[in-house]
C-alpha cells in the first residue's frame, strides 16, 4: 500500500494512494519523462530560429516555412520561404522562427490526439496517474468544460494531413541538390520521418471515424465498401497508434537534430553529390 487513508473494503483514498504492489509508477515516469524530453526539445528548437536548413534538407520543425530570417546560421534560404523574409513588424522579443506557423499544427494535432490525451492526463494531470491509483485532488469535469476544445481534434487532423503533404515534398526534394539527383543519409532520415508521421496520422481515431467508422453499414453500396477497406487499413494502424505516436515523435526530434548537426558542421552528411 502507498499513501492515503483506508476505508470500507480496505481501499485507500488520496493522491497516488493504491494497494497495487506492482511498479505502476514506472509507466507513469517513462511517459512523463518522454513527453517532457521530446516536447521540451522541440519547443526549445522552435525558439532557437536557426540551423533548420542544410541543403537540400529542411528540418520538420521549420517546414513549410512561411517566412524566414534574412540571415543567420542555418536559416532557410529566402527563395524557399513562401512569403520571403519576416515582416518588419515582427516583434523583437520573438525569435524569427518559421516553426511558429504551420509546423505548430503538428503540436495541436498531438495535443488533442486521443493517445496523447491518455498520456498527459495520466502523466501531468494525474487523472489518474495509473489504473486504480488515486488521482490528483482536483475538481474533475472530464472533457465537459474547459477541455471541450479536445473535440476539435478532427479539424486539426485536416491541418496535419496538409502538413504531411509538405513533409513528403521535403523528403522527395531531399533527392535533389542544385538540380542534381542524388541521395544522402539526410534523405533517408527525411523519408523515414514522413513515413512514420503518415503511419501516425492515418491511424488517428478521428481519421478512422471519418473515413468509415461513422458508417453503420459497410456493405450497403460501392462507396461504403471502399470506405470499409480503407477503414480496415486505418484500424491496423490505429491498433498501433501509440507505437507510431512515439516513433514519429522521436524521429521528428531526431530529424531536426540531424539537420541541425549537419547545418552547424558538427557532422558531415554522407551522400552521392
Amino acid at each position: 500500500m502507498s499513501g492515503g487513508s483506508a476505508s470500507i473494503g480496505g481501499h485507500v483514498s488520496g493522491f497516488a494512494a493504491t494497494r497495487r504492489s506492482d511498479g505502476w509508477w514506472q509507466g507513469w515516469a517513462l511517459t512523463a519523462g518522454g513527453l517532457f524530453l521530446f516536447f521540451g526539445y522541440l519547443t526549445l528548437r522552435a525558439f532557437t530560429g536557426k540551423y533548420y536548413w542544410a541543403d537540400p534538407y529542411i528540418s520538420p520543425v521549420a517546414s513549410p516555412p512561411l517566412f524566414t530570417p534574412v540571415n543567420g546560421p542555418g536559416v532557410v534560404p529566402l527563395h524557399h520561404a513562401w512569403f520571403g523574409a519576416f515582416p518588419s513588424f515582427w516583434p523583437r522579443f520573438l525569435p524569427q522562427s518559421p516553426a511558429f506557423f504551420i509546423p505548430g499544427l503538428a503540436i495541436a494535432f498531438r495535443a488533442t490526439c486521443y493517445y496523447y490525451r491518455k498520456a498527459y492526463y495520466r502523466a501531468f494531470a494525474a487523472t489518474p496517474p495509473a489504473c486504480a491509483v488515486g488521482g490528483a485532488p482536483l475538481k474533475y469535469r472530464g472533457e465537459t468544460a474547459l477541455l471541450l476544445f479536445q473535440n476539435l481534434h478532427r479539424y486539426v487532423l485536416y491541418g496535419a494531413l496538409l502538413l504531411l503533404v509538405f513533409l513528403w515534398y521535403d523528403a522527395f526534394a531531399a533527392f535533389f541538390r542544385n538540380g542534381k539527383f542524388g541521395i544522402g543519409v539526410g534523405t533517408l532520415v527525411l523519408i523515414i520521418n514522413a513515413t512514420l508521421l503518415s503511419g501516425y496520422t492515418f491511424g488517428c481515431h478521428s481519421w478512422r471515424h471519418l473515413i468509415g467508422g461513422k458508417l453503420n453499414c459497410f456493405s450497403c453500396d460501392g462507396a461504403s465498401k471502399t470506405r470499409y477497406k480503407i477503414w480496415k487499413k486505418s484500424t491496423w494502424l490505429n491498433e498501433r497508434h501509440m507505437l507510431f505516436a512515439w516513433l514519429s515523435l522521436f524521429w521528428v526530434a531526431f530529424t531536426d537534430f540531424y539537420v541541425m548537426m549537419v547545418s552547424s558542421h558538427h557532422i558531415t552528411d554522407l551522400n552521392t553529390w
Binding site: K118, R122, P128, C131, R141, G142, E143
Partner: peptide, 11 residues
C-alpha cells in the same frame, strides 16, 4: 449518459 466525462485514460 455523459460521454464527455470520460477522459479516455484507458483503464
Amino acid at each position: 449518459f455523459g460521454s464527455g466525462w470520460c477522459n479516455i485514460t484507458r483503464c
